[in-house]
Design a protein around this nucleic acid. Sequence first.
DNA 1: ATCCCTGCAAAGCCTTTGCAATGCA
DNA 2: TGCATTGCAAAGGCTTTGCAGGGAT
Lengths: 160, 160
Amino acid sequence: MASSMTSVDRVCAKLRTEGRRVTPQRRVIVEVLMDNGSHLTADQVLRRARRELPDLSPATVYNTLHELAALGVLQELDLGLGLEQRRYDVATEEHDHLVCLRCGRVEDVPRRNGLKGSLGEDHDFEVVDRRVIYLGYCPECSSKNQTVAGSRMASENVGA
Amino acid sequence: MASSMTSVDRVCAKLRTEGRRVTPQRRVIVEVLMDNGSHLTADQVLRRARRELPDLSPATVYNTLHELAALGVLQELDLGLGLEQRRYDVATEEHDHLVCLRCGRVEDVPRRNGLKGSLGEDHDFEVVDRRVIYLGYCPECSSKNQTVAGSRMASENVGA
DNA sequence: ATCCCTGCAAAGCCTTTGCAATGCA
DNA sequence: TGCATTGCAAAGGCTTTGCAGGGAT
């Protein structure tokens, strides 16, 4: 609690430093992000923030989310699996993502090797970053699949 | 040419095998996909197919694209960089993608190591597939960036 | 002769934008 | 007080859906 207050304050301070204003809306949005784990969609942020500010508008949420991303506080995460909503992730160190194809759960995995990763040398691209998504089943769903045989269906719903 | 006809016919045969019908629309869409390289958006497919069939509707294109993806002929590719359109890729062997942050060009890179890739062992997920996007600059844009200094801006427009 | 497929149009979904009113600094 | 920020509402872009007519098998 004390620590989450602190990180909220730290973000607010950063906003002020950048010449931005700290409004009640922004403070609540930041609190939601700090308290509710990662990988929230804009709509999830909106819903939770409305518990405090029922009149909060989607536009304000998007606006704030983008600002925080620009400040480096958040990272926008698009799983790239279709048309699902973008998710917002408190920025930490570089990491990849595990996505459960059954329940949609998203989990972070630390990145083990450098930027190039599995990329060969024989290409002309100047690589500056990479996005890695591992698709599969979380422990719970994995055990369910063994009896329900739903794994093929689910994996067919995912693009390349 | 002869080879592209052949692969078009092969896809049409596959459609019939699956109980689907081969309509002029579908044939043209398949031709576009085979002749025009990979990573086309639905809209690009639509535009090019309309050179042959001016009345072709978007709904038919989407419908056909999804069917071909379900048959394993195509792979849907969502770069996961924001809200850009999905792309359609003739299905070949497993590969990752290079995306130029400046010109948007997409290029395939063969995958060097197995599914697990850079993923460690200490997690509970049952991994069945993965998506890897390398972000950077193609040779042309890379040389332009050195003088134009546009690289920071472009990379800021990309999510995590 | 089936009934799958097509085109049109409308709806859906998430996100962005315009603008006047509000309120932080 | 000045100007960033808010909320509302409308627009935007891509994709999906409903439906009646048309066409492949």
